[in-house]
Design a protein around this nucleic acid. Structure first.
Length: 427
RNA sequence: CGGAAAGUAGCUUAAUUUGGUAGAGCACUUGGUUCGGGACCAAGAGGUUGUGGGUUCAAAUCCCGUCUUUCCGACCA
């Protein structure tokens, strides 16, 4: 990719939003564009970071044998009326609909009804269990108040998984499996995930945990000691002490530290609540009709995207200058810069890396080196290769933007280094 | 939906209090000098001041409506 082909807008950052400086940079530099409250377009780099998040989630969910599927975004009103949730979602104003003179469709705010219909008459025997389905798809919610840029939009990308088991023990085992897959996923995204006890009030079931990432940009407050934790909202629950002890073995909340976090996922062990009410059942080995023990699990992909920017901000002299995205999600590993004299060398490096299928950006504009470095950081590219006056010909200064470390190496060593990185991140 | 603020060039904004030719910085275009951490000089282009109505000789400015956005609250991934 060449900068001259990207249609980039260069801009000096003005004063940044104090709550969400990272996403404010994206907005100021045109990497995201706002069309209305909670409505955003994504430019190339941001979009491809999102693609990477999806790939990583899929990899880990596939590894626990969950099956990827896709539900329709346009869902007939009848589907929502059949579950009895239509009236509530409409009167709450959360659900958006499109209609013509013949019929009305609901724009999927969530997918329980659709997935239930998907499982109905398909999952019929204990021989098919356990099984789980997942999808990553757009969701539409006409939130009364959008906030935090990508954190809560009217249109957002969500991962949602639904599990079906024969009994409570199997459900618990599936629950733990999915929870572990969450930790593996977020480890690869280089985000420290914290599972905290949550109020399972509206959705119900036996237990639920919110998957949080500690972030100053977060809207939630949690109590956490490095191992166990809870969302402070649980403390508003009746008999919260019993609930915490019974489901999470938390007995003393005074030892926990208060911190700000952003909720990226939520997992629920539902039990038979929905299979009973929606009447989806299977036949066990004794020819008995039994309700499924279900679980549902979500990740706000758009929020992950936002927090990846908020939590990977880099500063120079205490001034925010951009991002250094983790290599696991960076759509481009390297941003190549040269002065006029060494343009040809930069082009050679670019071609060699392209031949090795290393995703990179060449800044082939006539801007000053300083401005090019600024642009690399605004885009969040983790490595910058500088071919300028301070290194001899055929040598490249490679800067790692995360810690500002610099090393000088030959062109072929640069190529080898990025081949190794590519190998390591399995791309 | 309750409460609060704000809409002026692509962005940040001045002029609003006290009505009188809408001004600047960044970004953009052209020419020249620069070229390792957001260069400089010169010239240029860019606005029916969110929108509709009212008051007035005259409205960005005053009044009323309306739309939009942001913030606090409730809800959520």
């Amino acid at each position: 990719m060449k900068v001259s082909k990207m249609g980039l807008k260069s801009i000096k950052l003005t004063e940044l939003d104090k709550m969400y400086p990272g996403q404010d940079i994206l907005l100021q530099t045109g990497q995201i564009k706002q069309y209305g409250s909670g409505l955003f377009a994504y430019d190339n780099v941001v979009l491809r970071v999102q693609d990477r998040i999806e790939e990583i989630i899929k990899k880990h969910m596939d590894s626990i044998d969950s099956i990827e599927v896709e539900m329709p975004l346009l869902q007939p009103s009848e589907l929502w009326k059949s579950s009895g949730r239509y009236d509530k979602y409409i009167s709450d104003g959360v659900m958006l609909t499109v209609k013509n003179d013949k019929c009305e469709y609901c724009l999927a705010p969530t997918a329980e009804e659709a997935i239930t219909k998907f499982a109905e008459n398909r999952l019929i025997s204990y021989k098919q269990l356990p099984v789980s389905f997942y999808q990553i798809g757009k969701k539409f919610r006409d939130e009364i108040r959008n906030r935090g840029y990508l954190y809560r939009g009217k249109e957002f990308l969500m991962f949602d998984l639904y599990s079906f088991d024969e009994n409570e023990d199997n459900l618990n085992s599936t629950y733990e499996k999915v929870k572990q897959a969450y930790f593996d996923t977020f480890k690869e995204l280089e985000l420290d995930l914290v599972a905290v006890a949550a109020d399972n009030g509206t959705i119900g079931g036996t237990r639920s945990e919110e998957m949080m990432v500690i972030s100053e940009s977060g809207e939630d407050t949690i109590l956490y000691d490095g191992k166990n934790g809870l969302n402070v909202e649980v403390l508003e629950k009746d008999n919260y002490a019993d609930y915490l002890k019974r489901e999470y073995n938390i007995t003393d909340i005074n030892n926990l530290n208060k911190m700000k976090a952003i909720e990226l996922g939520h997992i629920f062990a539902l039990g038979t609540k929905y299979s009973e009410s929606m009447n989806i059942k299977y036949i066990d080995q004794n020819n008995q009709i039994k309700p499924f023990y279900m679980g549902c699990y979500g990740i706000g992909v758009s929020r992950v995207l936002g927090v990846l920017y908020e939590n990977n901000i880099i500063k120079t002299n205490n001034e925010i200058v951009g991002f250094s995205l983790p290599l696991s999600v960076a759509p481009y590993y390297l941003y190549i810069i040269s002065n006029n004299e060494r343009e040809d060398e930069a082009l050679t490096l670019y071609h060699k890396l392209n031949e090795a299928n290393i995703p990179i950006i060449l800044d082939d504009t006539k801007d000053s080196i300083g401005k090019k470095i600024r642009n690399a950081k605004i885009l969040g590219i983790p490595y910058i290769a500088i071919l300028g006056a301070s290194t001899e010909n055929l040598l490249v200064e490679l800067e790692y933007t995360k810690d500002d470390s610099k090393e000088v190496m030959t062109v072929s060593n640069v190529v080898n280094k990025f081949k190794e990185i590519k190998e390591k991140y399995q791309r």
